[in-house]
Nucleic acid binder design. Sequence first.
DNA 1: CCTGTCCTGTACGCTACCGAACATACCCGG
DNA 2: CCGGGTATGTTCGGTAGCGTACAGGACAGG
Lengths: 240, 240
Amino acid sequence: MTASTHDPLQNHLLAALPEADFDRFRSHLKLVPMPLGEALYEPGTRLRYVYFPTNSIVSLLYVMADGASAEIAVVGNEGVIGVSLFMGGETTPSRAVVQSAGHAYRLPGQVLKEEFTRAGAMQHLLLRYTQALLTQMAQTAVCNRHHSLDQQLCRWLLLSLDRLSANELVMTQELIANMLGVRREGVTEAAGNLQKAGLIQYSRGRITVLDRPGLEARTCECYGVVKRECDRLLPGSTAP
Amino acid sequence: MTASTHDPLQNHLLAALPEADFDRFRSHLKLVPMPLGEALYEPGTRLRYVYFPTNSIVSLLYVMADGASAEIAVVGNEGVIGVSLFMGGETTPSRAVVQSAGHAYRLPGQVLKEEFTRAGAMQHLLLRYTQALLTQMAQTAVCNRHHSLDQQLCRWLLLSLDRLSANELVMTQELIANMLGVRREGVTEAAGNLQKAGLIQYSRGRITVLDRPGLEARTCECYGVVKRECDRLLPGSTAP
DNA sequence: CCTGTCCTGTACGCTACCGAACATACCCGG
DNA sequence: CCGGGTATGTTCGGTAGCGTACAGGACAGG
């Protein structure tokens, strides 16, 4: 846990790049802190940078007119925030919010686009990552439709933990409720169930996972689908 | 309505291509019928062709282990089926099923990939379309979470109608229920509500829209978000 | 030590949707 | 005209999650 040393290669996408490709833009990479709750972009705004998280997690979520919200996907060190930049749309209707504080390396959008248009390893990686993102969104839709809050909470915890390589999350129930698009009380109850079952331990914004296999057994198939697609499509699996 | 004449340019993506680009592969395009219920691909299978619908509609849906299903996105003449081919993953965990019979032009995957790697207009269009697909999936997730069945049915009808440029759908309630991932009885009730309100007329697998503005007023914001993104990202708006 | 604030737990009535069973209505072919 | 299949409508009890309200516990600052 010597977490104070930072390296762009902690991001799996960057780590998977051949050195020659990476060297072309490494000087443009800048380490930035990712404080909890910071919005990396708002709906409809043009992106200036893309972000490669190392030890932070970012939620893509949609906020409705009445203020209610729902998470669409979660991005950690396996991916990048700002897909719409190289996809050509420049903006999206969603928000990107830091869900777990940490750091990321950011790159000016223009530099990324130039690298993308070389049609080399970077393009290849980014497109594969985008497909993994597609799968994650699709599975979120399915899960929202069919599965119980208990199961969804398990899925959400597992996805987040995979992206932190840790067994602890700093995360209030209120925040989780916002992400999942449910009431805070619902999360209290679901988390209570998991705690009673001895799978997690909760204490004032600090969740510790006690029994990961137990969580995996309790979650719905959605987690597995997303996980397998990530492992298949992306280099450097998100978990050991 | 002289619908018996077919032309690849009825697909908006193909129509938006500069002639020079289109000519390179037009000889590989083949008109194929799209019968109701046909599966264009199954989860995990390698795609041999991509499909450019003209007057048909295809649903991307995920089928769970217990047989329950949920629609993830819908594709018509504004897009293409087989995104994972050029994104690099080759397969997806979802299914593609013809939801409204008609025709499509299919293209061998290899030909599409070659055209894609030229990094010309085709690549540009396909990537923008994929971003529109991302938005649609994201919004499906949001809608599944927050909105009533009535609203979701409105959204679904409008999205389908936009892709047919018609005011009539051949579609049983049972099928709609499968797409939306709800009970058939739920659709009966929701459709009954819309009929009582004078917005649609239902008769044995045939839905006629009587009051489109009324539907738009009744649906949730999700429809508008998807529609606007499609219009913004893609050439040849999906509706007049 | 006291107090205010933030986080978590509990309770209660309500609604939308589920699951299952059953009742009609329409269409087609014999 | 009759029968069978298919599509639609109705009913009823059950339940997950909502909205609202409130209570207790932890931590921080004075």
